[in-house]
């Protein structure tokens, strides 16, 4: 392994991670400085729920596609969403496995799993890029950051797919690109919409507590 690859897969990643953590810390601090709206209203609803239950339901809703009309009516979109995010987990995991636990990649099964997830996520990424450009609704709501983040992630998946076997016998180009991209990704993410997962627990908990108190969450419905 060249010094450059070693630097990229170790020191560069560590610097980028520290940077990301620092910006995230600042971001959360900034967020928490905003005043939390106090809820004084007496509870409404059937008495079968409460803020805690509402919050649990709200946070867990992401894993309950049946609980939200927008995912229930578009199962393919939901499946894409799941695979895309599993691809992210796989690609992040790989960036730790290669430098700190390369032995794990001797397992052909693990390599195949990572390739399956990152490969599928990459294809979905391409589909999403096309959708964002061609669908007038998506185009209208997209910012340059949305487009760039998607392209960045899709490219990153492609390199993760190629890097998964951790094989440098035919050159280090792919590995270098993957780690450089990972480092860039880590630095860019806190400034982009990709950092949405930082807010997710907050927004979903606040909304869940609110709707739990009001007796709205968990949602009730009579299916057609």
């Amino acid at each position: 392994m060249s010094n450059l690859l070693h630097f990229s897969s170790h020191t560069l990643q560590e610097i980028a991670l520290v940077f990301m953590a620092t910006v995230y810390f600042m971001r959360v601090r900034w967020f928490l400085k905003w005043p939390l709206a106090k809820e004084r209203q007496p509870a409404t609803g059937m008495g079968d729920t409460n803020p805690k239950k509402g919050a649990r339901y709200s946070v867990g809703k992401i894993a309950m596609p049946w609980a939200m009309e927008s995912s229930r009516n578009k199962p393919l979109m939901y499946a894409q969403f799941v695979i895309f995010h599993l691809g992210v987990v796989a690609a992040i995991g790989l960036s730790f496995i290669i430098p700190y636990g390369p032995g794990l990649l001797k397992s052909a099964g693990l390599v195949s799993l990572i390739q399956l997830l990152t490969g599928a996520a990459c294809i979905i990424g391409v589909f999403r890029i096309i959708r964002r450009i061609t669908n007038p609704y998506m185009r209208a709501i997209s910012s340059p950051d949305d487009h760039f983040s998607l392209v960045l992630l899709t490219g990153w998946f492609a390199f993760a797919f190629m890097a998964a076997p951790n094989n440098i016998s035919s050159g280090e180009g792919v590995m270098l690109a993957y780690f450089m991209l990972t480092a860039f990704f880590l630095v860019y993410v806190p400034f982009s919409k990709i950092s949405h997962y930082l807010y997710y627990p907050f927004t979903r908990t606040y909304l869940g507590r609110h709707f739990g108190r009001r007796g709205v969450y968990p949602l009730k419905r009579t299916p057609a």
Partner: peptide, 18 residues
């Protein structure tokens, strides 16, 4: 602005699900 609103303003990923 309240924290709940700031969360809503900051968290949109423009996914179009809504």
């Amino acid at each position: 602005l309240t924290r709940q609103m700031v969360g809503s303003l900051a968290a949109c990923v423009h996914c179009g699900q809504c």
